[in-house]
Amino acid sequence: MLWIQYTLRICVLRLLLSALFLVVYAKTLAQQDRVLLNLKQENTSLIRQNQFFIQEVEDRRRAPGATLGKIIVFGRETPLFLPKSAEKELFSYWSKTVQKREQAYVPLYITIKDLALTEKRMGPNKVNGEAKLNVSFRWYRNMQAIELTSFQTTVTYGRTERDYDHAKLVTQMLDQSIIHFQKWMLGNVGKNAALARNLILIFKDIQGRNDGDTVFYHPKRPLIWDDFRGKGKVGSRYAAAVFTSFAYEGRSFPKGADMVLEIGLKVFMVKSMSWGNANARNANTIRHEQLHFDVTRVVVERFKERLKKADLTIDDFDSEIQYQFLESFREMNTEQENYDGETGHGINAGAQEKWDRKLTAEINRIYSVQ
């Protein structure tokens, strides 16, 4: 009888243990419906010399959120997730890597195009996997997105069905991406216009040789009658005519954190298009023509002032410069007509003297400042 009771107790105990095992196993399976991957930043001094900081991380994957793909757990595919969204997790991770944040640094926006792990069970205790990361880097200048560079990598691996450090694999790829950007930036600062923060406008007067068909404006080099080599118009009622104009040429280049825009200006007269009648080649006539040249030079100075006040941006300065050039060219023509109209082409001595004083003062002011 005792033996039967003992045997029954053992059977009941075994049943209880089996039930407990089933409960634990079921709980384990339930827990393995998904696997959480925690990103741990082990090297906070990975980026020591940075000129940027992480401003924002944007997830543009086909399936944004916390999902990372599927891995093999207990012989079956199991979803892999981050604790929070990829945007929050990667922002936190990279921000710990790039801790230094200064106002003069580039605010970096990172776009996640691909971040995924996939695994396949190839046989008993044999798993093949693939991890992908594809990110792009940009920043905003004057509310315009400036694309900088990108990073893409794919890692294939094989493993047993034992525990595998997926977190280490992912963090290594994340570290590689930010190191890639740091190297790119160090190699492009001061060389690449995409990183320029400010536009610096400078002007340069272009002087050439005066022994050809062109005379370049200079206050110490007034016009002489030998500069007037064109043929006058038959029947013209004017004593002389001078062809003056101006042009510009520009070049831009990065310098430190700035973009330098250099505008070269040419103010000139063309000898073959300028003429003077032989019986009118006197001091008064050539002085009148010289003031035409001065008018052009004064308008060029106003053109420079227009550009200083214009809304020139690093991303689009050429169209604005061309617009201001055309406006100044119209102003030059109008001013030349006003000059001839008020002075009667030099016949009205009082008006001629008034224009002479005004333009002489303007030219003196321009070159005293220079």
Rank of each mutant, 00 (worst) to 15 (best):
M1E: 03
L8H: 07
R9S: 14
V12D: 12
R14G: 15
Y25S: 11
A26I: 11
K27I: 05
D33K: 13
Q41N: 13
N43E: 03
T44F: 09
Q49D: 15
F52H: 01
F53H: 04
Q55P: 05
R61Q: 02
T67N: 09
I71D: 00
F74E: 13
E77G: 07
F81L: 13
A86G: 02
E87N: 01
L90Y: 05
F91P: 12
T97E: 04
K100H: 05
Q103H: 13
V106A: 03
P107R: 01
P107D: 05
L108E: 01
K113H: 15
E119P: 09
K120W: 13
P124E: 12
E130S: 06
K132L: 12
A145N: 06
F151Y: 06
T160V: 05
R162K: 12
Y164E: 08
A167Q: 07
T171G: 04
Q172R: 00
M173W: 09
D175I: 11
I179K: 14
I179P: 08
W184V: 06
M185R: 09
G187V: 09
K191N: 03
K191D: 06
N192K: 01
L195Y: 04
D205R: 04
R209A: 15
G212F: 04
F216P: 00
L223W: 10
W225Y: 12
G230E: 05
A241T: 07
S245D: 15
A247E: 14
Y248M: 03
E249I: 12
S252V: 13
P254G: 01
P254S: 03
M259C: 08
S272V: 08
S272E: 15
W275T: 06
G276Q: 11
G276L: 13
N277A: 12
N279W: 15
R281N: 15
R281C: 14
A283R: 13
T285E: 14
V295P: 10
R297M: 01
E301R: 11
R302E: 10
L307A: 00
L307V: 01
Y323F: 11
Q324C: 01
F325R: 03
F325V: 09
L326D: 15
E327L: 06
M332Q: 11
Q352R: 06
E353W: 13
R357T: 06
R357W: 08
T360Y: 13
R365T: 00
I366V: 07
